[in-house]
Write a protein that binds this DNA or RNA. Structure first.
Lengths: 329, 329
DNA sequence: GACTTCGGTCGAATCGATTCGATCGAACCG
DNA sequence: CGGTTCGATCGAATCGATTCGACCGAAGTC
């Protein structure tokens, strides 16, 4: 038995002859190699890395950034020979987070119940890494320069001459309700990404007003856009916190007979490059989503190996598209 | 130990007092419940269902239908308390298919290497179910009425008066190369979906010509569209085998100054309803993708329980959108 | 020729939970 | 009050592989 184990695990020294005998014997008994369950028990490792996403797959992957994150994670995980467990973050208990074998957890984005996921993983002694989400103590994170990047976009609008600029933010907390961007809403905000991007924008336009979207979707952006553009002194530019929201704002503008960028400048955030999306070439900050995914998975793997790792920071890059221009008049 | 096991698994009869003692003891030792690895070894079940997708996540999820499939699978799996292992189908060995614990496999769509995946699973004695892909012996499948559905679309075009109709098909085999729709290509075809849809179309327009796309993407459809519309006697209608391809064809038409549906009618297939996609309301067949996903997962679960299951068939529904009209003149 | 050394093979403990059968105690019946 | 029954608890075997140390034989050394 021990020799067979060596043959299959490729570890120790086995003579070619014995190796052959083991393999033919295995073939006769049609033994398909070691049972992963037993192996993982003995080794104390399952070779599985869990990725926690939104509650429903279809919501999670409506956002191309999330797909790109997962793509990066998937690549890094495959390269390391591990497997990827997709865990939709059901609020109530009974997640597969509690019952499935896993060596590490990567939190993607920020579903309403992430904190519970972190607790669960902690109790089970599974290392956690976060990607593009809310920070937790002792959870190394892959983070973006959201604040500076948004300041760059705002600066771009200011330099073009815009003064009346409104924003459409990502959800600020777990509740996911559309709302005006009130001081209270901002005070209660918990989602890092949204808060940082807002701070960056307000570093340039301190009293910038706007709308809080219920999700990062085109339809959401469209509704928000309608609301902003119906205002009496409508803005000459809108800073949306995601490309999908920006696409929605542009649709809303077109519906109202406003031309972009003639009557309205629009900037987004993310730099998604998916051919199904956005007819326009958006002015935006491009974030290296797949790289961030890889980095997050690499952090997770390092933590499995017992290494102490620090958070990693990525920078996004300004892309001047065709949706911004000086204000009219 | 045995009593503790009963407490955590909720199985046998345990008095409230003992139960309490066990739980407080667990809390003191901060024991977080049974180790999934050991549990799965003993029970012979890991509670994990693998889903095999395209080689790269980003390719797999470029297609909204694949996301909807996965969404349905994810729902059914969560409901049953299982977990979802996402396995990108790397061609070479060393997939996590071989090394990770799983109780069943769902094949989604048809990556170039599915057959190897089937073999691997077979050798390991893991039941396999297929969804929207190529059929295999002893693999129960969730299938669509591709042929009749496409015949419906073709019939619609014929009834409108179209006679010169071209098609853009999905890839016909594992090689994924753009190509003219030659007799040889059709003879060598292995992908059920593409073949059936083509057969349905040709049941109405027997000598229908066209292009084989390299993937189901808007950009692909656009290139194919350009090619078809540049022909000397250009078609008055194009039947694309997916909505994404149809969207691309429409873009190509617009580039050439053709109006849809005035100068060109376009039909798609799938009925994807994602707000980022396709500016037009497409004439298409709507397939119940999420339901199919659920059904596939349910089949997998039934097979885990040792039941003998049969393939399931779903029907798609005709949706008359704004992209078809009688031919001009 | 005896001793060391080293590559290769084998025994046996171990990972942590589940589960069947055995045991034990209390309540109930006649 | 003895016997039976039932519910709760406990012992011990088991799932299948890994791995450390023991062992064995052959080659090399003095």
């Amino acid at each position: 038995m021990s020799t067979a184990s060596l043959v299959f695990s490729g570890g120790g020294p086995v003579s070619e002859a014995t190796r052959g005998k083991v393999l033919t014997a295995a073939a006769e008994l049609d033994y398909a190699g070691p049972d992963p369950r037993a192996r993982s028990l003995r080794r104390g490792r399952s070779g599985v890395i869990a990725v926690v996403i939104e509650e429903r797959v279809i919501d999670a992957f409506r956002d191309p950034v999330a797909i790109a994150f997962l793509d990066g994670i998937g690549q890094e995980i495959s390269d390391s020979g591990a497997a990827l467990l997709l865990v939709p973050d059901a609020g109530g208990g009974h997640t597969s987070l509690e019952s499935a074998a896993m060596d590490a957890v990567v939190l993607v984005g920020c579903s309403p119940h992430v904190d519970r996921a972190v607790q669960t993983a902690r109790r089970r002694g599974v290392p956690v890494v976060s990607l593009g989400g809310t920070p937790f103590a002792d959870v190394p994170a892959v983070e973006l320069d959201d604040r500076e990047a948004t300041a760059t976009l705002a600066g771009h609008l200011r330099d073009l001459g815009h003064r009346r600029v409104a924003t459409v933010t990502l959800p600020l907390g777990p509740e996911r309700r559309r709302d005006r961007l009130t001081a209270e809403a901002v005070a209660a905000a918990t989602v890092r990404t949204a808060v940082e991007r807002l701070a960056g924008a307000r570093s340039v336009f301190p009293d910038m007003d706007g709308v809080v979207a219920a999700s990062s979707r085109v339809e959401e952006g469209r509704v928000a856009g309608r609301e902003l553009l119906a205002a009496p002194d409508r803005p000459t530019a809108v800073l949306a916190q995601s490309d999908l929201l920006a696409a929605g704002v542009i649709l809303a503008a077109e519906e109202l007979g406003l031309s972009v960028p003639g009557d309205l400048s629009v900037v987004g955030f993310d730099g998604i490059r998916i051919d199904t999306v956005v007819p326009h070439d958006l002015t935006t900050m491009v974030q290296p989503a797949a790289d961030q995914g890889r980095a997050a998975a690499a952090l997770a793997i390092a933590r499995i190996d017992g290494q102490d790792v620090a958070s990693e920071h990525f920078r996004s890059e300004f892309h001047r598209g065709g949706t911004t221009a000086p204000p009219r008049g």
